[in-house]
Design a protein around this nucleic acid. Structure first.
Lengths: 128, 128
DNA sequence: CCGTATCCGATGAGATACTG
DNA sequence: CAGTATCTCATCGGATACGG
């Protein structure tokens, strides 16, 4: 992916960092995963599904809309109804993100195990 | 991925969130990408390559080591030499992360464009 | 129902200076 | 070289309360 010398700033790492700084945070990833699954979700459906606070959901949805990953449709009924769905760009993001989600589900136990071992070893060193 | 009713807390989202909270941050992703590329890197090589501060690199590397993604080898020479490499778990993480990195590189322009459009439209609404 | 505004603590992240 | 220790500032993220 990166063909620069080991030393010296890697321009690609810089750009990847930039993109991940925009759409790479935890909530954005989970929102994209959920929308890909259900096609269309209302605000409170997303909120309950993810267990996210109202504030964060509001912020993240606007970011995602701004970055062109999510489409927002406002129905001026009473009570109001707002629906969110992925754009094409959003779906293209879904592909790699889904792989990441699956890895996460599969490997949580491995990480837990590694942590436990690391911590117990650190404990032993301290007492030694 | 998630087969729960739309409403109601999604346990899988919760767990994915948990994993991403550990290894899903920007620097960890970039460290894994770099190590996958070069196999073995020393502390300062990574530092220069990523353009990361000494402090953050130190913290992130220890996290990654603790979570079992990165292996740390200390050579007690003078001056000291410390080498970092991916573990098997780290390499298994690399696969989905690489896809994410490639997407990021490919779609930075699209995101920029979407942002620009969003911002200009917001600007027009304000002045209307 | 769909948000915004405010307050607050926890974490992220660079800069700088110091040690073995 | 490979870190640790502080200090400082920004951002993340929940809780709560309020408005259309």
């Amino acid at each position: 992916m990166c063909f620069v010398e080991k030393d010296g700033q890697c321009p690609e790492c810089f750009r990847i960092n930039e993109v991940l700084g925009r759409v790479g945070d935890r909530w954005s990833v989970l929102i994209v995963l959920s929308l890909a699954q259900y096609k269309v979700l209302r605000f409170n459906e997303l909120k309950r599904h993810l267990g996210i606070s109202q504030r964060m959901l509001s912020l993240k949805l606007r970011e995602l809309e701004r970055d062109g990953l999510v489409n927002r449709t406002y129905h001026p009924t009473i009570p109001p109804k707002v629906e969110y769905a992925l754009t094409d760009l959003g779906y293209s993001f879904y592909a790699p993100v889904k792989a990441l989600g699956i890895w996460a589900l599969d490997n949580l136990p491995n990480i837990d195990e590694a942590r436990l071992e690391f911590d117990t070893q650190a404990e032993q060193k301290k007492s030694a």
